[in-house]
């Protein structure tokens, strides 16, 4: 067993893991942070997206031990003490979710998109940048609207 320590949502955490333990397994099973989901096994669906040192990544394709010392933000760590993160609020306001399973990954991916592409996102850009996230419920229509609105709201927030 290996000892791993990292900062997750602002808190120092550690655990005993196998080398093969994936980051998503560490988050879900060791830390009980079940907001990060697993929707596939081929690194395509994006349900498991988290931020590693502020960069969006698929936690199903990262070794937990490889994240030793890293700063991780999951969907549980996105909201602020005074309420939802603007991107979370935008998903609610725009009906950007139905079953909600892909939603944590969508939101973490969307906030990463804003970091990379800025606040003023046209629909075509959002659609292209959502390439790594799959949703089965919404037809993406309201997700795209939510990301656009959330990106704009993050500017003033």
């Amino acid at each position: 067993m290996l000892r791993v320590a990292m900062r997750v949502n602002g808190a120092e955490v550690s655990g005993e893991i196998e080398a093969r333990t994936l980051l998503v397994e560490f988050l879900r099973q060791h830390l009980g942070l079940t907001g990060t989901h697993v929707g596939c096994d081929t690194t395509q669906c994006g349900c498991c997206t988290v931020h590693v040192n502020d960069v969006g990544m698929k936690s199903c394709t990262l070794l937990a031990i490889g994240c030793d010392g890293a700063d991780i933000t999951t969907i549980e760590g996105l909201a602020r003490p005074d309420g939802l993160h603007p991107m979370q609020a935008a998903f609610c306001d725009n009906h950007g979710l139905q079953c909600g399973f892909c939603t944590p990954g969508m939101i973490m991916s969307a906030t990463d998109m804003v970091r990379r592409k800025g606040h003023d996102l046209d629909a075509a850009t959002v659609r292209k940048e959502l390439e790594g996230n799959i949703c089965r419920c919404t037809g993406y229509h309201n997700i795209v609207k939510a990301v656009q609105a959330g990106a704009a709201a993050m500017k003033t927030a």
């Binding site: 079940t34 549980e76 609610c92 979710l97 939603t103």
Partner: peptide, 14 residues
């Protein structure tokens, strides 16, 4: 239902 689903506090089967 969105409040819990957008904050990662839903409870799915796994």
């Amino acid at each position: 239902e969105d409040q819990r689903l957008v904050t990662g506090h839903g409870c799915f089967s796994d």
